[in-house]
Amino acid sequence: MTKIDGAAALKRRRRRTALVGWSFILPNLVGFAALTLVPVGATLLLAFTDWNSYDTPHWIGFDNFQRMWDNDNFWTALSNTAWYAAGHIPLTMAASLGLAVLLNQKLRGVAFFRTAFFFPYITSLVAVAVVWNMLFSPDAGPVNQLLRAVGVAHPPGWTTDTDWALPAVVITSVWRDMGYYMVLYLAGLQAIPAELYEAARVDGAGPWKRFWHVTVPSLRPTTFFVLVMLTVSSFKVFDLVQVMTEGGPGRSTLVLSQLIFREGITQGRFGYSSAISLVLFLIVLIITVTQFRFQRRSER
């Protein structure tokens, strides 16, 4: 009798512990499930249907993917997104690392500069886009006035020029993001033991050598994290492009997320736009997995 009672009590206690555990994660889990997990799962299914948000969806197999393969807009958007990533990732990394190294020194007013460089990141994105659009204005914009002043006779048309619109967006996004990644790098820099630098100095290493042989290797975990975050955010870029150029002029800055938005929300082809989302997800997944592989190999 007592043995059975004991077992029942144990079971009850376990169930209770589990319930308490669930109750802790429930608020977050409900939000995540309702707003992320279910829509993502739905996207996976919708990609194989012709759903238009109103009528009953029909299963159409790989038709959406076939259509994507044949569609010029998809390839244009994919190549623009890749170009954006190719510009945004290295430039942001270089700029944020450079800033972090500069602001990791004992300077007067260093807190002010750190705050100042972080500011763009917390500024409203629409405001950033509008102001940079003005700065890049081909005739009256300060950027081109400066270029003319230093002797560039025909400065680029920036957002009004198909060749320069994407670089203009990249410059704006680097400016906006570098403060955030600078903070990550600063944290990484402050974790490097001072002894390493002292030892290097004793061995006769100059500032440049110390940077390459002490700072850069010690920052590898931070760099990896920054790289992964930047890759994901570059492939997902939407808001800045939408406000700055709306994909124009022509299709010169059309990116994948914008195409997804246009096909889904504007044209109501949710099946097709889900298929594009799925492809975008797979691209990001493959790149991130590859990055993790490389990271693990270089750690060995």
Binding site: G157, T160, D161, G247, G248, P249, G250, R251
Partner: peptide, 15 residues
């Protein structure tokens, strides 16, 4: 409409 708008931009801006 989307296509005509995009190409219109390119013609009018001299691209």
């Amino acid at each position: 409409d989307q296509i005509l708008t995009e190409e219109h931009e390119l013609v009018m801006s001299g691209e």
